[in-house]
Amino acid sequence: MALVETRALVKRFGAFTAVDGISFAVNRGEVVGFLGPNGAGKSTTMKLIAGFLEPTSGSAAIGGHDSQTDAIAARRQLGYLPEGAPLYPDMTVSDFLEFVAAMRGMTGAKARDRLAELVERIELAEVWDRRIEALSKGFKRRVGIAQALVHDPDVLILDEPTDGLDPNQKHEVRELIHSIAANKAIIISTHILEEVEAVCTRAIIIARGKMLSDSTPEELMSRTAATDAQGKPRSGSVRLEEVFRDITHPKKLETAGA
């Protein structure tokens, strides 16, 4: 059974259709990259899967539990980093992560051990007792990621997890995603195409609420020349970028009726 499944998901805000009939399934071991121009509907789709928004029609399920009608069971299996990594500014990092762990029913030694492990992996030790409002953007993002991992969930939905991180941290987060990917279903959204090449097993391109492409990064890359005009090999992310621009080009979208 797929760990994440969406069926003909539609979300309208008034007359505007932000998500327009998106269906896909993500299995254990897959890392799916959501790509698409600004306003494509990536974050909205993630909010629908997480159950924060209710779909206008269609449905989403996590671990077989409907995000709306069986929300609590669905959320137990979900770690979610919302867009912009919102956090409570008045709390310290430790208070915040302990709060999230406790809200997820983790207490005592179990919570302590898990948090200690995360502090190490996500390198939060130096800010552990600091108030979140006093953290740099990158540390805030790391706390946001830690928060999503507290209960070691089967499903991870991370909305732009590396936004605002320095190159070292970007690398660390990718390593982290890589190292836990084998027994989870992960969806990340990103505007950084080399990230797709580095961590994703699958890339879904969305524009104007519609899914335009669903394939492996390699398949995407193969749609464009492997060498430039001088015959020199081009890097994967350069090729991905070209394919991305080609697929999501506004003129092309018009003619495709998307």
Partner: peptide
């Protein structure tokens, strides 16, 4: 943060 708290189980 409403998105965090409303997606807790």
């Amino acid at each position: 943060t409403i998105e965090l708290i409303m997606t807790l189980p």
